[in-house]
Design a binder for these strands. Sequence first.
DNA 1: AGCTCTTATGAATCATTGA
DNA 2: GTCAATGATTCATAAGAGC
Lengths: 284, 284
Amino acid sequence: MPVETLIKEGDCLDVLQSQPSSSIDLMITSPPYADSRQSTYGGIHPDRYVEWFLPRAEQFLRVLKPTGSFVLNIKEKVVDGERHTYVLELILALRKQGWLWTEEYIWHKRNCYPGKWPNRFRDAWERCLHFTKEKKFKMNQDAVMIPMGDWAGSRLKSLGKNDVVRFDSKVGSGFGKNIANWVRRSMAYPTNVLHLATECGNRKHSAAFPPALPEWFIRVFTDLGDWILDPFAGSGTALKAAKGLGRNAMGIERCPEYCALAQEILNDAQLVLMQPESHYVTAL
Amino acid sequence: MPVETLIKEGDCLDVLQSQPSSSIDLMITSPPYADSRQSTYGGIHPDRYVEWFLPRAEQFLRVLKPTGSFVLNIKEKVVDGERHTYVLELILALRKQGWLWTEEYIWHKRNCYPGKWPNRFRDAWERCLHFTKEKKFKMNQDAVMIPMGDWAGSRLKSLGKNDVVRFDSKVGSGFGKNIANWVRRSMAYPTNVLHLATECGNRKHSAAFPPALPEWFIRVFTDLGDWILDPFAGSGTALKAAKGLGRNAMGIERCPEYCALAQEILNDAQLVLMQPESHYVTAL
DNA sequence: AGCTCTTATGAATCATTGA
DNA sequence: GTCAATGATTCATAAGAGC
């Protein structure tokens, strides 16, 4: 099943003008954080973050299908000793724009940056805000079930590589029935807390989320062949995840160097279904 | 070292009028959750939650010492398919009132309530909002260091009861020096994500937070002999934790039955320093 | 004592029913 | 219609029984 994977250079505010309405199934992105990467991204000042974001979000709202989802990975910076409020204000503003703030997932960063400050512990989590257009939206909960408890955990660990592949291929066409029976009994639905390690592999683009993050949301909120959009594509992590999972994807990125980097990464991307997966979510 | 533990019946808005200014080192509380059902006792409608909370927070601000902390355990409800925004609005309103929104800790509930819904996973986290009056405030980071990695974890498990007691007594007066050396090398500072199980024990009061939650913040933000206030004391979990850690505590509770229950629980409270602790924080 | 197995239940949420 | 009450769903713990 061939999928398209496009990268477009430019500001998503401009690029999306030519995108048809209601054409995207899932938007997932980690936008430029306020002021944090001034040198590379031309960071946005925290006090003006909402007004910068809103016109772009208006385009997002237009191109997203009614049953689609918008997942925004973001975390407020510390400014002057305090957590800045621009993320809170953004949520309120997006609701006024017509979005539904359906859920807030927590990405728990298992291996967060080391460091010590006198009045603060290490920051080990980020928000994954889930917005929708309608109360009813596409959601495939079975696609992200996790091993249940210790008993099942130890059983799963004893599985061979082939079993893992067949287990993983569940999302795709078929699912071995013999294994399905006891897997079903030993699997549980996840919660709204995701335990993922940060990946430090990508040196050229520092801010990207780990592939497991978009993978998880892509599995939950889209089917094979759906369209995924990352309006701040960066090095293309979400695009690669989409391609690997058999979804079409479009990325928009302002910086030409990141565009080139993303294109390069995408050329290496394979369908992950054919490989033992990266254990994107583990039971605690 | 004798400590005082008081319980006062009434609305904290009234009771605190007679409390001296700048007399409290730490406020930690889990306020009544917003509830759209009118029939439930004490339920505040989400749309009026902020206006209900603000005058009480004004008293909190007055009685708290300049170096003190205010920890607010709260989570927004789902209303009409959406996360309600009253918590976000409360944060913004508290900042206008003069509070600094210093940090947001995540309480990850390892054993959250079961259930399955078509558009939502189980809710496994709550906010612990940390407000202060000044940028510099009291913080004892060493008091909550955690075992680091598997090596230290397995070493700790092999310790006998006496070792555990001495290890635990670190927060108190003394700390065995022989064990201290290698413990120090194997301990790490925690992050702003707390992994605590909810407690199933308390049947009379539907168990706000588990004792480990206030314990953790009490260790971080207060010293022995400090004063702790819980303006919505419920069954007195925070008070008991404070007493057990050698801190003075005052609780305010509107419901007479909870007051009686809290008094009963406090009579059983011992200095936890003398007992093997409940492993309030585990490394992931 | 330890270990396995069973059972109860907890600040939940949604769809449905009835007033 | 809107609002309140009920049933169904479901998993990580603790506690207790049995060996």
